[in-house]
Computed example of a mutant assay.
Amino acid sequence: MEKIINEAKDALGGLKNLLSKIEESDINKIPFEGSWTAGQLAEHMALSNAGFVEMINGPVKETNKPADLMVVKLKEIFLNFNTKMDSPAFIFPADKVYDKNELLDRFESIQKDLVKSVNELDLTKTCTSFELPNMGFLTRLEAVYFVIYHTQRHTHQLKNIYLNLN
């Protein structure tokens, strides 16, 4: 458990630390054509990660596969920075003004909730509240790695936004 907790803290902390470096006056600026603002990217991550924490803490069933079966596939998908992905509508960030400190507070809360879940729950159980297209239902362990790799992907994108703002 310590390994996965450290990976989650590193991923979520890395995104939070990078967002904190962006000036409040730049958080809602479009850094280049076709990009989200830093605020929109952070909102997308807050929506996604909070949703996954909710899923991890939601209804489950016994698992009939290795609990980590999809972890490698998730890593390959999210850490391939050459592929462009579209966000599902339900976690697509609104076009509005975002407050950096509010986003940072949400990240802190999500990280605490995720670590608590990893510490307290049986990660081998399969989450049944949400089915991923082409992947099916994830185990709690796979869902935690979804959060880790998805966060690493968007931290990479936030670095690009940060560089273009400066």
Rank of each mutant, 00 (worst) to 15 (best):
D95G: 12
E142P: 03
I110D: 00
E120Y: 07
A67G: 12
A46C: 11
G34L: 10
Q157I: 14
L121A: 12
I27K: 07
E76V: 03
N101Q: 09
F78K: 04
A11Y: 02
A46D: 04
G14V: 15
N64H: 12
N101S: 08
K125E: 03
H44Y: 02
S109C: 10
L138S: 03
D68S: 10
P66V: 07
G51S: 04
D95A: 08
K73A: 13
P93A: 07
N101M: 15
Q40L: 01
S87F: 03
E7N: 07
A8R: 11
S48R: 03
P93K: 01
E108A: 08
T151D: 07
E76Y: 14
V71A: 08
P59N: 14
G58F: 00
K16D: 09
V72C: 15
L19H: 05
D68G: 05
A89H: 06
L104E: 05
L69A: 15
S129Y: 14
T151R: 01
T124S: 11
I91G: 01
R153P: 06
V72D: 11
E54I: 14
N49I: 07
E62L: 11
G136E: 04
N49C: 12
I110T: 05
L104D: 00
P133L: 15
N17W: 11
E142N: 06
I22K: 02
I56D: 03
T151F: 06
L114G: 04
E102P: 09
R106S: 01
A46P: 00
N6R: 09
V53Q: 03
D122N: 14
M45Q: 14
Y145N: 00
Q40T: 01
A46Q: 04
L163V: 13
